[in-house]
Amino acid sequence: MADLLSQAKTNITLLTQAISCTQKLRSTVTNVFNFLCEGVKPDEDQDNKLEEAEIGSLSKDARKFLQRFQDYLQAVNQDYNEVEKCCNAMQSTTELPLLGPLGLLAVDPTFDKNYFYRDVLVAYQWNQKMHDYAQSSFNFMQSNETKKSIFPGGKRRVRAMPQRFQIVNPQLIHLALSSVQNQVKENVVLKIISSAGETRVIQATVAKVFVATILLHNSVMEKVIVRALSEESFQEAGSYDIVRDSQFECMRRITDHAMAAILEYSTLHQASPELALKYILLWLSSYKTLFIEKCSVCRKHLRDGLPPLWRDFRNPIACHDFCRA
């Protein structure tokens, strides 16, 4: 990504150079025409001069005129060479996936009026720099660790790294999804419902129990909604519903637990969101026995009219919400 940016930068500087060169060329060409229009004397027009030059009998004025004309033409030639040099030095930018769909802003004709894309580029660069800085300072702090907790066994708090803009190739995400699907294929069926830019809606059907709708941004999970199999996931207009909660109490509670699980797994596996997605799906697949399994604590199916809805994040055994306390 960084070399793409530097490439774009050099292209932009070359473009500005080329524009100024073109302006120069235009002025020198205008100079030539102005010079020709003025002429030297009414009887000394260009053609006459050329003929005279051929026969080698030129007047003093005519020689002077020719000299100046040649100078002007040379200037034009020089400027033209410069423009050409700039053009040749420029690299093709068609394969630049700059900041994903934001790159389209760069080709927007209204770009001249607003500076969104330029600002975005600057923000992106700042973000990258900040991340690098945080990384290096984190490494530095690790090597010079000081213990500040007053408790003897006090654990050091792990601070989250600042977020980094991610630009991931869509094919890579599809590959990651299919590999995850292979690992959980016994209980979970994954289906990509729609993708708009970098956001994808994924439907995970867990055994014969429920359908989980996962909203992915790149490969980072943003939201999950759990609905019963009998509930309609598509709206009347045909679009996929990513807002409405389930009408069933137990599914709404599982949605809450799943959101907590997303936070838990995403924080644990910040560096590799695909791993977090895999763990979430494995965790969701532990719900395949939702209506069959009894609570591991009270050995009953029901408590307050609800089956055992809680599954621990590390050891997913069935348990009622209130039995885990």
Binding site: K208, V209, A228, L229, S230, C250, M251, F291, I292
Partner: peptide, 12 residues
């Protein structure tokens, strides 16, 4: 209501 398979949820 949430379950569609009688054999699964009969115990419950």
């Amino acid at each position: 209501a949430p379950c569609r398979f009688p054999l699964d949820c009969w115990e419950l």
